[in-house]
Design a binder for these strands. Structure first.
Lengths: 330, 330
DNA sequence: TTGATAAATGCAAGCGGTTACACTTGAGAA
DNA sequence: TTCTCAAGTGTAACCGCTTGCATTTATCAA
């Protein structure tokens, strides 16, 4: 059986209280005793049961990451930075990809994490109320939000889309499509809003037929793009603003297969600047979103709320257009 | 304060034992009482503290995933399938990306997970002994391994590399380079062994100069490939077996920049068939490794060990060559 | 009505730790 | 020698839950 603190106490010939103090560096134990305890612990390969510790202390030193998906390069860049930062700050990371709402609740409020990072559209209003009520510090990544012990780190999607669209227009593109993401996704909608406002600003018509539903995924973007091309063979746009990079890649594949040249006939812009964007042929013009920074800031703000009782705040990160070879002047 | 089982008991006018039984479906409680308890629990927004539960029951219903990296498309495909399968089987997932060895030990043996999936070269012999001793069920993904309550799910890297190399030879390629991964990585070494054995089998020389260190990463593969080209401009290989897909992509980028055509002058084969391989231009010939299946099987075997006391076993998955446009006959 | 039996419920121990507080010990002062 | 006090150690309560077993209540036959 796994040794407990009692086994160590017995082996060292002291009480469990002394073992606890010796092991946790509470410096009231005599140096000699401490050595005895340490030796006994090592001898038995003792590793403390964290559950006992956590139950007693009310802290788990664990962060939760709740998400509805973990697929796509955006997410792995995000998880990477969250996991690494959490580790650096002395926290472990729990990743929950469940779709079951009751499971989410159980983990969210089951004292299994000290705080949560949320990218999960199924966590809605009532849940947020519960989060407040249970006083679980939370950071939202998929929408701006601020309340007691609740904050957010989001991108400036509206402005980025506005600028990217304006850039396409400056290249002489006049018929620009938007490849939308999930219908109720905040970023996708903000990007669409920025796209439409830019069109208006420069006197171009806003045409709902040019909104294509790519759902942030390659296959969908590819097939919807193909469908669009076959439906309007004479009426191809000369610019595409894709909801994210992988979506842009799907669109470009469809264009290529239809013999339409990128960037000459159609210029394409993505979002995020995920790793593959620069390696792709043609390399992708995109808005670089500081994904890694989003993860870092999320963890830092969260840990601040947990450890220093900080207030939550809504931070908005600016992206930056990176011009590569998928866009050119018309 | 967060309500506890005592609060619910008080509100429902019963004992905590009854609350526990009512809430956990132990069907000895009277229907009427159960209703009262459920109502009180809902009224108070009661969510049980999982730590108490876990400490008492000795089960956490959590799986741990220990890895040294989470970057690259291989890992996110893996995490995705692990997380999803774990969820389907009623387990949560803890992801540990820490480099700190003592942290690994604390989490690994701190009763915070019921079993672990390991892709982490820093977990070596002594740790494995500890794992056995602490009786933590474990699955290794980065090396074959079998012992009591320890199993593995790996790829048939040797055979896959042998076949891929043989395929390049069948296309008339005679000077084939191997773009190696991490030096002490099992898969990378197995692939190299298969590559070398195929060369020997078909009477081609094995030349250590043709082993290029790509480290499984795009930038390294790109720069090492460039370096190779500039050092031996007259002596470019006509085939490249890359340690993984992203590495192949790096090599192709370098070749393209040097004006060397793929697949005509140099044919390139990757490993894994990650999502991007099919979308890339030229689309990548590669060995499809069932990454998703690796994750699924890992979780299933692990849960079998946890719940049914199954024996650990070493499962080896076969890959399959997928021919696309990065290879052609010479 | 009473007793036997079954159905519900409650008491209390215990999971493995931490920690307030009480206790023991020994050194130095009176 | 006796007292005081600091240093070191130990006792026991507690964190929130589950569960074996004792106890209470309900049911029904005699």
């Amino acid at each position: 059986m796994k040794p407990t603190i009692r086994d160590v106490a017995k082996a060292a010939g002291v009480s469990i209280a002394t073992v606890s103090k010796a092991l946790n560096g509470v410096d009231v134990v005599k140096a000699e005793t401490k050595l005895k305890v340490l030796a006994a612990a090592k001898e038995l390969n003792y590793v403390p049961n964290l559950l006992g510790k956590q139950l007693k202390s009310g802290q788990t030193n664990m962060l939760g990451f709740f998400t509805n998906s973990v697929s796509g390069p955006y997410f792995y860049a995000l998880i990477e930075s969250i996991a690494r930062t959490a580790d650096n700050m002395g926290f472990g990371l729990n990743v929950f990809v469940t779709k079951r709402h009751d499971t989410i609740q159980n983990y969210l409020f089951g004292n299994v994490v000290d705080g949560v990072i949320v990218f999960e559209s199924r966590i809605t209003g009532p849940d947020v109320d519960m989060i407040s009520q249970h006083r679980v510090p939370a950071i939202f990544l998929d929408r701006p939000m601020v309340a007691d012990k609740i904050g957010s780190i989001t991108f400036n999607s509206y402005q980025e889309a506005f600028d990217a669209t304006a850039y396409l227009i400056s290249l002489g593109r006049r018929k620009i499509a938007y490849l939308a993401g999930y219908p109720d996704n905040y970023d996708s909608n903000e990007r669409q809003r920025g796209y439409e406002d830019a069109l208006k600003k420069y006197g171009l018509p806003v045409n709902k037929d040019l909104i294509i539903l790519g759902l942030f995924e390659e296959p969908t973007s590819y097939s919807e793009m193909r469908r669009f091309i076959s439906l309007h063979p004479e009426d191809i746009p000369d610019g595409i603003l894709a909801g994210n990079d992988i979506s842009a890649i799907g669109a470009m594949r469809a264009l290529k297969e239809s013999g339409i040249s990128v960037p000459q006939e159609v210029s394409v812009i993505g979002f995020d600047d995920v790793e593959i964007a620069q390696y792709f042929q043609p390399s992708l013009t995109t808005t670089r979103n500081p994904i890694g920074r989003q993860g870092v800031l999320a963890v830092k703000q969260l840990v601040g709320m947990i450890s220093n009782n900080d207030q939550g705040q809504s931070e908005v990160l600016d992206g930056q257009l990176v011009v590569r070879n998928s866009t050119t002047i018309k």
